[in-house]
Computed example of a mutant assay.
Amino acid sequence: MCGRGRGKMRIMRLRDFWLLVDEVFDPRYGRTLVSEHHLDALDNLTAAQALERGAEPRDVWHALCDSLDVPDRTRWGHDPFRQAPPRR
Rank of each mutant, 00 (worst) to 15 (best):
H38E: 08
A47Y: 03
L64N: 00
T46P: 01
Y29C: 13
H38D: 09
N44V: 01
V34L: 11
D69V: 06
R31P: 01
A63C: 06
S67M: 13
S35Q: 12
C65L: 13
T46S: 14
A63G: 02
V34W: 01
H38C: 13
E56R: 02
L19K: 07
P57T: 09
V21M: 11
F25G: 05
F17I: 04
S35N: 08
D69Y: 14
T46W: 13
V34M: 08
H38I: 07
L33E: 09
V60M: 07
D40T: 09
D59N: 10
H37L: 15
A50R: 00
W18N: 06
A55P: 00
Y29T: 10
H37M: 07
T46Y: 10
G30K: 07
Q49E: 09
F17L: 12
Q49A: 11
A47K: 01
V60D: 04
A41C: 09
D69I: 05
W18T: 02
E56H: 06
C65W: 10
W61A: 04
V21P: 00
D59C: 10
F25N: 01
L68V: 07
N44W: 12
Q49G: 06
R28V: 13
L45D: 13
D43G: 09
D66C: 08
P57A: 11
G30R: 03
D43T: 06
Y29N: 08
D69C: 12
F25I: 04
T46G: 11
D16I: 01
P71K: 05
L45Q: 14
L64E: 05
L39D: 00
L45C: 07
V21H: 06
S35W: 10
C65K: 05
E23Q: 02
C65V: 07
D66S: 09
A50I: 06
D16T: 12
L20M: 10
H38R: 12
H62K: 10
F25K: 03
S67G: 12
V24H: 02
F25A: 13
A50S: 09
S67D: 15
L33D: 07
C65M: 15
A48V: 01
L42I: 04
A47L: 09
P57W: 11
E36F: 08
L19G: 03
W61H: 03
D59Q: 08
A47R: 01
L45G: 07
R28T: 11
A47E: 00
T32G: 08
S67T: 02
Q49I: 03
P27L: 14
W61T: 01
L39C: 08
E23N: 00
A63S: 12
E36P: 00
D66N: 06
P27G: 10
V34P: 00
W18G: 04
P71H: 11
D59F: 05
G54V: 12
F17P: 01
D40M: 14
E23R: 00
L33S: 02
E36G: 03
L51E: 03
E56A: 12
D22F: 13
E52L: 09
D43E: 15
S67L: 06
N44C: 15
V70T: 06
